[in-house]
Amino acid sequence: MGRVIVITSGKGGVGKTTTTANIGMALAQRNRKVVVVDADFGLRNLDLLLGLENRVVYTAVDVLSGQCRLEQALVKDKRRGNLVLLPAAQNRTKDSVNPAQMRQLIAALAKVFDYVLVDSPAGIEMGFQNAIAAATEAIVVTTPEISAVRDADRVIGLLEANNIKKSGLIINRIRPKMVAVNDMMSVDDVTEILAIPLLGVVPDDEKVIVSTNKGEPLVLSGTPTQAGTAFENIARRLDGEKVEFLDLMVKDDLLSKIKNFFTKSI
């Protein structure tokens, strides 16, 4: 049986889909058999981030309604054959699927794949309930902003209430320079507040937008990027490896040394 992991956040726009696409691809590069499931019915995006939008024929809803077989709906990535996408329907709403159906669908996938990554929609309503229905683990994505952290906290509570005990935190879009001048919460600030184990820290990186434009996850790019390396490290940690966290802090220059001296002495 493969591991079923839901990627969720509560708040929209914090990077759930980017995270799913990159971790999925990075795990595939480690020769794991991976299926990424878009659970955002009505607002699907995972196909775009993977550059697979033109190859979507059937969706999860077609499988559930018996219009096609499960293997017909799965889109195989040409760059990495062991990465497969199960697209969500774009012309249906989140209420067209129920948790029992999701459990059935994902149970079938977990028999074949090592990892089933479920990209959850924003919010905590039906779409979220569907996404977490079959999951036994969760990745909570947040950014160091008050609204994202508050929503992440709510989601962590709901995951616990739904008996998903194993959760890891990803702090996305951290800006080390802003943290250094006390204008942004640090990784420690956020982990202290949310109190779940840290799985990874991804720095704010313009390259993410470029990779989205191209439909090519960062971890595929030949030239290493900070965010890409961060996602690769997350995949390795998920896979059981011990990997040090990236040192994102800006190097101590003379000014910050003086600053630290004054902070300590007062």
Partner: peptide
């Protein structure tokens, strides 16, 4: 030195 300031936006 903004670090001295406990009223920083981070705090």
């Amino acid at each position: 030195f903004p670090a001295l300031n406990d009223r920083s936006s981070r705090q």
